[in-house]
Write a protein that binds this DNA or RNA. Structure first.
Lengths: 79, 79
DNA sequence: ATTAATTGTTTTGTTTAAGCAATATTTAAT
DNA sequence: ATTAAATATTGCTTAAACAAAACAATTAAT
């Protein structure tokens, strides 16, 4: 199983699935399936998604669950 | 079409397809198909491959062709 | 308040492509 | 030439991706 933060970054940017889908030439339904983890996209798909968010694929997809973003804010940082 | 440098990094490490396949629980034939670009792997596959090479997915896969590694050596670097 | 109209999400087929297993072919070494 | 190792091909199974339709939820307008 592969984890992702598509829904997080999509909503953060105020995009609907359709809007996001149009940006990267993908089906809005497919985005739905991805967001609820029904399947793991092709790396091509993943690259297009990461591009549109200006992220690396590794920031968007992971084999291990992502920590909550709130724990990554400055008050929690070690260094 | 998605480009990758699997063959490059695999041979650089002196691994056969079978050896690489065993490391990440994948079919050697599948690696063959990936190396000659017959298809684009799932992002799960891509993450496992990147892990074994200690690379990011973006260093291993790209929507645009990769520049020859020889052009990235220090003598060519700008900064 | 009810109905329409619009927008967003989910479900259900169907098609296409990824991945596997087995086999064939090539390459390398003796 | 023969064997072994590496790579390529073929056929099949499963999962990704799409298209169409169903299902909310919101807003508009009467």
């Amino acid at each position: 199983m592969v984890h992702n933060r598509i829904a997080l970054f999509r909503t953060e940017r105020g995009l609907s699935r359709k809007e996001l889908a149009d940006l990267i030439d993908l089906n809005p339904q497919t985005i739905g399936f991805l967001e609820r983890g029904s399947y793991s996209p092709s790396v091509e798909c993943a690259l297009r998604l990461a591009n549109v968010f200006n992220l690396s694929v590794d920031d968007l997809f992971s084999l291990k669950p992502f920590p909550a973003l709130s724990t990554q804010l400055s008050v929690h940082k070690k260094s």
